[in-house]
Design a binder for these strands. Structure first.
Length: 259
DNA sequence: CGCCTTTGACCTGCGC
DNA sequence: GCGCAGGTCAAAGGCG
């Protein structure tokens, strides 16, 4: 099983006919000018410093990704174990002689668990001690109800997208019966707008587009590097963003896992 | 003051 | 028609 990790970082970056990293500084122009030499040196020093800083941040981001990847692997193993346990349980259940009514209702429940069109089921790891049923997935939600269901002692929370009624998406969040450390999130419908994380990425892309026009004159950075740098800046500014990003990564991974 | 959560009441669909 | 369970509404209260 191979999960592709795509955070859509380049989704909103402009891809016009002139690639950003093709824009170069022309060294031949006025090269015999002394002032331009020192200016050039200064710009080079600046570039070297900037590059080492960017690669350091790049390393940090790689470490973060590696941690997320490790978490994904352990989670993956855990989910597989749970699925195997469930299969064993179901086989055992079928062997026993249940009366017809019980059997019918159990099959109905299995049918209900299958995702319908426009419905996505995502398993999100959470802190077992956390009873809040809050799952950060990059979108803003408004809770409109909570119910205790028959087949699960832990309450089910009902959320609407805060862009409702413009955005019709709803989600149900309920702690898994099998594992206290996992919540089952059921999404109904699809968002007709960007998530807050995508908004930030889009804003960054806009910002880098503007800043690039002046920076390209000295040292044309790759768009990815600019994004990585600015993402890191955002990460360091907003601690909540880290958890949102982690949640988004894990839900994305688990989404791939679900289908 | 506006937004969000909580929570009891109400609505709806389904089985008997 | 009745009861049950899931889903939704809306008033009240909390919080920044």
């Amino acid at each position: 099983m191979v999960a592709t990790l795509d955070l859509n970082l380049s989704l909103f970056c402009p891809t016009d006919d002139t690639p950003v990293n093709e824009v170069t500084f022309n060294h031949d122009d006025d090269y015999d000018n002394d002032e331009d030499h020192s200016f050039e040196k200064e710009a080079d020093d600046h570039s070297v410093g900037e590059l080492s800083r960017i690669s350091k941040e790049n390393m940090e981001l790689k470490e973060t990704l590696s941690v997320a990847w490790d978490m994904y692997n352990s989670l993956n193993a855990h989910v597989k174990k749970l699925m195997q346990d469930k299969e064993v349980l179901e086989l055992g259940t079928k062997k026993r002689k249940f009366d017809e009514t019980v059997q019918q209702s159990s099959w109905k429940r299995l049918d209900d668990e299958l995702p319908r069109s426009g419905t996505k089921i995502v398993y999100v790891p959470i802190d077992p001690s956390d009873k809040s049923l809050v799952v950060k997935d990059g979108y803003q939600w408004r809770k409109y109800g909570q119910k205790v269901t028959r087949d699960n002692p832990s309450p089910r929370a009902y959320y609407k997208c805060s862009f409702a009624p413009t955005c019709p998406v709803k989600k149900k969040v309920q702690r898994s019966m099998e594992d206290d450390g996992v919540v089952v999130v059921t999404y109904d419908g699809e968002h007709n707008h960007r998530s807050t994380m995508q908004e930030v990425t889009y804003a960054l892309a806009q910002e880098c587009e503007v800043s690039n026009t002046s920076e390209r004159m000295f040292n044309p950075p790759k768009l990815d590097e600019v994004l990585v740098e600015q993402m890191a800046t955002y990460l360091s500014k907003d601690p909540n963003f880290t958890s949102e990003l982690a949640a988004a990564i894990s839900s994305k991974i688990l989404e791939v896992e679900t289908f």
